[in-house]
Amino acid sequence: MSDQLLTIEAIRLDAGHVRLRLTGDLDYDTAPELTAAAAALHGDDEVLVDLTGVGICDSSGLSALLVMQRSAGAIRLTGVSPQLQRMLDRTGLAELLAIQHDDDLRATG
């Protein structure tokens, strides 16, 4: 069982845009919560997934992110830790999932 449960805070930014702020561990025990949250989204929503508060993300967590990508109109990941970035790179998912880095925010902000 996961040491830290996952909390998902959904914030509707405007029509068609949602921010999901995840806090805790995204793993085998908690990934179904993210999958359920993804199912509640509208297919045309653009979802910003804030992973700043995620401590651990395993293969089940990566799978849940892919399910979310299929459920939503588009997703962007932000707050990706160096460890998670390495996992995304090694699995090839970095090419499939849009990742917004802090540098991207400064350039547009």
Results as ranks from 00 to 15, higher is better:
residue 103 D to R: 12
residue 39 A to V: 09
residue 65 L to H: 02
residue 60 S to M: 10
residue 71 S to L: 06
residue 104 D to G: 03
residue 48 L to A: 08
residue 97 L to Y: 04
residue 67 V to G: 03
residue 92 G to V: 12
residue 50 D to I: 01
residue 37 A to R: 01
residue 80 V to G: 01
residue 51 L to F: 06
residue 59 S to Q: 11
residue 48 L to G: 00
residue 100 Q to W: 03
residue 16 G to R: 11
residue 51 L to I: 06
residue 31 A to R: 02
residue 61 G to E: 02
residue 73 G to C: 04
residue 74 A to Q: 11
residue 61 G to T: 06
residue 107 A to V: 01
residue 35 T to W: 03
residue 33 E to F: 07
residue 10 A to K: 15
residue 10 A to W: 00
residue 24 G to I: 04
residue 9 E to A: 14
residue 56 I to A: 06
residue 55 G to K: 08
residue 105 L to R: 11
residue 30 T to V: 06
residue 95 E to A: 15
residue 99 I to T: 12
residue 87 M to K: 12
residue 76 R to D: 08
residue 85 Q to K: 15
residue 11 I to Q: 14
residue 81 S to M: 11
residue 75 I to V: 12
residue 38 A to R: 01
residue 25 D to C: 10
residue 103 D to Q: 11
residue 65 L to E: 01
residue 37 A to D: 01
residue 84 L to C: 09
residue 39 A to F: 09
residue 71 S to P: 00
residue 39 A to P: 03
residue 10 A to M: 11
residue 60 S to R: 06
residue 79 G to T: 07
residue 57 C to P: 02
residue 44 D to E: 14
residue 39 A to W: 10
residue 88 L to K: 03
residue 107 A to L: 10
residue 3 D to A: 11
residue 56 I to K: 08
residue 15 A to L: 14
residue 87 M to P: 04
residue 108 T to Y: 00
residue 52 T to L: 09
residue 9 E to M: 09
residue 104 D to S: 06
residue 53 G to E: 07
residue 8 I to W: 03
residue 36 A to Q: 14
residue 31 A to E: 02
residue 9 E to L: 12
residue 107 A to K: 09
residue 2 S to T: 15
residue 71 S to N: 12
residue 49 V to H: 02
residue 23 T to G: 09
residue 9 E to K: 13
residue 1 M to C: 08
residue 24 G to A: 10
residue 88 L to Y: 03
residue 56 I to T: 12
residue 9 E to W: 02
residue 62 L to S: 06
residue 68 M to P: 00
residue 2 S to Y: 03
residue 1 M to W: 07
residue 7 T to G: 08
residue 36 A to P: 03
residue 18 V to N: 02
residue 56 I to C: 08
residue 28 Y to A: 13
residue 10 A to T: 14
residue 55 G to T: 09
residue 60 S to F: 08
residue 78 T to N: 07
residue 26 L to Y: 02
residue 23 T to V: 14
residue 78 T to I: 12
residue 94 A to P: 05
residue 58 D to H: 08
